[in-house]
Amino acid sequence: MNQINYPEFANDCLHDLIEKQDIFNAAYDINGYENWFYNQATGLLTFSTGDDELNFKYVEIGTFSKKSNTWKWSWDNEHTLPSVKDEAIQLKEFGAKYGYEKLTEGYFASSEEEAWEFTAIAAKLIKGIGAYRPTSEQLLIFMVLTEFVDTETAKNVKDLYVECGKHEYRRRAFVCSHLMARKKVGFEESFDTYENMELHDEDDYQAWCNECEVVRQQEDGWNEKSMEFADIRVVCEQCYFEMKEINLGYR
């Protein structure tokens, strides 16, 4: 196995990122937008001014705490969703291959300069088109942007998610009103599901209780009468699986 001089490699990655960032800023001018917003569930970073939006897919690389001067890799952060951290595991694998401890340890003392170094390495390994660090007073989040997402596609992605008072922003799901009582009433699904499964955009989690299933069968499927009885509600996927666990004890 050929060894790589880590300081030289990291420095080369930083120079590559600076060049890449110049090209990225010239193409998209993200600093010209008034607002920014990122969402782990959708995996989208959005810049906006009024109705004008610019969207990118992103990977969260890690966070740097200005309070404790520590770095934490996203793959070691249980609060970061798999949708935006799975690709970051490449850095851990790279570090293990070449014996670079700071790429394999989840949490350690560091500096903001080193955080940018890690981000530059990530941009190279996952072939990012640019990097971004949202403004924050204490916890700095470092991201690598992987692709531009056109407005229509971004809207379609965002429409698949709902804001939940308990679980924040999650994939939408549909349940009958009887399941909202959060007690055992039976649990019928349109297809077998499990937590964190990948769904096609045209698919949704859908469930209804035993009584709804009786009416549905009496009506030979879903029609105006069976839908009225079900009184379908929109919930987030986390609520959906909590209801499923109450009824089926699947865990």
Rank of each mutant, 00 (worst) to 15 (best):
F174T: 04
L81N: 15
Y58D: 06
A131G: 06
L17P: 13
L145I: 03
A181I: 15
L160D: 08
S74W: 00
D76P: 02
S110E: 00
T153N: 09
E34I: 02
H79L: 05
G249M: 02
N69H: 05
D220Y: 13
S65T: 06
D159S: 09
Q21I: 15
K183I: 12
F187C: 08
K102R: 08
F191W: 10
N210Q: 08
C212V: 14
S177T: 14
T151M: 12
D52K: 05
L248I: 11
Q90G: 10
N55H: 06
K155T: 07
F108A: 01
C13F: 00
I18Y: 07
D192S: 11
E8P: 07
I129L: 08
K85W: 00
C176S: 14
L179C: 08
V59D: 03
D29K: 12
G50D: 08
K127L: 08
F108S: 01
D12L: 04
F94Q: 09
M1S: 05
Y58R: 13
K66A: 09
G130N: 00
K155S: 11
T42D: 14
I232T: 15
G186N: 08
N69L: 10
R251W: 05
S110Q: 01
S48P: 01
D12A: 06
N35K: 14
H178M: 11
A88L: 04
R171I: 00
W73M: 04
C239L: 10
L81C: 06
Y250F: 13
M1V: 12
C239M: 01
K72V: 03
S83Q: 15
L139R: 15
E211D: 08
G186T: 02
N5S: 02
R172I: 10
V157I: 15
S110T: 09
N196K: 14
V214P: 03
D159T: 01
N247H: 10
G249P: 11
I18D: 13
K20T: 12
Y250D: 07
V144Q: 01
L199Y: 02
A10I: 13
V84H: 04
M197T: 03
Q206C: 12
P82H: 07
Y98D: 05
V185T: 15
E228R: 13
C236K: 09
W36C: 02
C212L: 14
S83F: 01
E117K: 03
G221S: 06
Y132P: 15
E228P: 11
D12R: 02
A207L: 10
N247M: 09
L125P: 05
M227E: 04
N31V: 04
V214E: 07
F94E: 02
E34L: 01
K92L: 01
K183W: 03
F94Y: 04
K72P: 01
Q90H: 05
H167E: 04
L17G: 13
D12I: 14
C236I: 07
G95R: 12
A131S: 13
S177P: 07
A88Y: 10
T151I: 14
G165D: 15
G128R: 11
Y33K: 12
E113Y: 03
V175Y: 00
